[in-house]
Amino acid sequence: MQRVNMIMAESPGLITICLLGYLLSAECTVFLDHENANKILNRPKRYNSGKLEEFVQGNLERECMEEKCSFEEAREVFENTERTTEFWKQYVDGDQCESNPCLNGGSCKDDINSYECWCPFGFEGKNCELDVTCNIKNGRCEQFCKNSADNKVVCSCTEGYRLAENQKSCEPAVPFPCGRVSVSQTSKLTRAETVFPDVDYVNSTEAETILDNITQSTQSFNDFTRVVGGEDAKPGQFPWQVVLNGKVDAFCGGSIVNEKWIVTAAHCVETGVKITVVAGEHNIEETEHTEQKRNVIRIIPHHNYNAAINKYNHDIALLELDEPLVLNSYVTPICIADKEYTNIFLKFGSGYVSGWGRVFHKGRSALVLQYLRVPLVDRATCLRSTKFTIYNNMFCAGFHEGGRDSCQGDSGGPHVTEVEGTSFLTGIISWGEECAMKGKYGIYTKVSRYVNWIKEKTKLT
């Protein structure tokens, strides 16, 4: 034993070699072989497995989906700052455009905790909710729209109204504003409101030439003092309507412009014939205590009207009353817009006519005020429907199939267009061939041609 100890002390290297040989010859039971080890760690190889990531292109799944990435790591994937920024906006807080917040056709661009709407022409605001041009839906104005110097929408209202708090709607500024039905039992019968379409306001006024200088022999019209197929109006439903009495009662109609003036057809009036105007009328054979009678003290036909040349060209006249009318729910003026808007309103496509005229061709006159909704007829169809001249200051309205029309005794009465609950004068009943005849239409004086003249002559002093 002493000898062994001496050998170990003198030859430590020998001992180490012996131990190493023993270990190498022993069977290893701690580690699995290569094949079995792979069965336990069965993990798919990654895209760049075996390579240094710093030297390969980034992978979106590896960089940002398996674990949260930084902007720089995302930049490695896209290799483009702009594309990385677009991805980053949604990656950080989701897609803010998912709810489609942009209105009126706006395009949404996502941002971090926010979004941006790219608005089409005519709109602005956070969600493109603000109209900035009158060309689109009248700028959301209830009545009139004008573009300011910086191309912003400025709404306005006709006389007797003021802008509401929203700067879009119009509200009454006087007790009985024009064009409004205020009798409670008839307010439910107000005709369907007309909503502004998209309009090209630059070209809204037709490029028409008034044929002022045409000389033409007097034409022989049949029954051209021209509501057939209409309905009984309720008291106060058309408070701007008046009836004219002269040699015979209810020979023509008219509309209240203001307390002192009536507008009617020029062919209705004769110099030297006494005319009485009755406002607030409903049943011409009954006294309903809503009527107001006034005498006409002055007749002003349009300066281009000449019955000797043509009885229905420039067929418009103004009547001055001896005493002002007292405005109330049964006696209310009709609204008159400017030339541009009167023309736009007419193009809405349908209007209402009213009167006490004959209820059928050569038949009896109506006792109760009649009204009828009539569609506008395109000019080409209008011209083809008659052998008589249709001037540019006239328009056609009615039904091709016949059966409904204005008729004798309705002449001078109103053709009105309702705009968001307020009625505007767009025409004056003038003439036609018979009444409600198939293929024939009622012919009306186009008020847009005469609004400046009306307003100039009827100013209240």
Rank of each mutant, 00 (worst) to 15 (best):
P12T: 14
P44K: 02
I15R: 03
Q96H: 15
E285Q: 09
R379A: 09
E270D: 14
N48K: 08
A308H: 07
F224V: 07
R294Q: 01
K311E: 10
A149Q: 09
S448W: 02
I299H: 06
V228M: 03
Y371F: 13
I390P: 14
I297D: 03
L369K: 14
M65A: 12
F55V: 14
K446T: 06
Q96F: 13
G179R: 01
P301M: 10
E79A: 12
C141S: 00
A9K: 04
H289N: 11
E72N: 15
S49V: 09
L14H: 02
A9L: 10
C102P: 01
Q370V: 03
F251L: 06
E79I: 12
K126R: 10
V353A: 08
H282E: 03
A436N: 14
G160V: 00
C97N: 03
K188I: 12
P197Q: 10
R191G: 13
K446V: 02
Y312N: 08
L346I: 12
K438I: 03
I15L: 09
G254I: 00
V199M: 07
N38T: 14
I454M: 11
R298K: 09
F144G: 00
C407N: 04
W453R: 00
Y352A: 10
I443R: 04
L130R: 13
L41N: 15
S156V: 06
V181P: 06
L325D: 00
S365H: 13
C157T: 00
T422A: 05
G236E: 03
S99C: 13
P301K: 07
S423R: 13
I299A: 04
P120M: 07
E270H: 09
I390G: 11
C396T: 02
K311M: 07
N213S: 08
Y305C: 00
D150S: 08
T381L: 11
F144W: 01
T209Q: 08
V419F: 13
N393Y: 10
G254S: 01
S156F: 09
T342N: 04
F221T: 08
A317C: 07
V227T: 10
G254A: 03
R373K: 08
H267K: 04
P333T: 02
E67D: 13
S329V: 06
E434C: 12
V77A: 10
I299D: 02
E35D: 08
C178P: 00
T81E: 07
V199F: 07
G421W: 03
G412F: 14
H314S: 06
F251K: 05
A37M: 07
G413C: 13
E53D: 06
L19F: 12
E82D: 15
D110T: 13
P239H: 01
D198H: 11
V257R: 00
C170S: 01
L189G: 08
T264I: 02
L24W: 06
Q2K: 06
N310A: 08
G160T: 08
K387A: 14
A164Q: 05
T332E: 03
V153I: 08
I15S: 02
L32C: 06
L367S: 07
E82Q: 15
D33L: 07
V416L: 11
G349R: 10
L367Y: 14
H314R: 02
E259C: 03
P12L: 14
E116N: 12
D322T: 02
G403C: 13
S70I: 04
W88Y: 14
L19V: 03
L20F: 09
D198G: 09
N310W: 04
Q57H: 09
P177R: 01
C69P: 11
K152H: 09
R43M: 08
E231V: 09
E320Q: 05
P197T: 10
Q241I: 13
P333D: 00
Y201R: 06
N295D: 11
C382Q: 02
L376C: 02
C157P: 00
L20S: 01
G357I: 14
R404H: 11
H314D: 12
A317D: 00
T133K: 14
L41I: 11
I297A: 09
Y91S: 15
I15Y: 03
T290C: 07
T290E: 04
L24T: 04
C252L: 00
V181G: 13
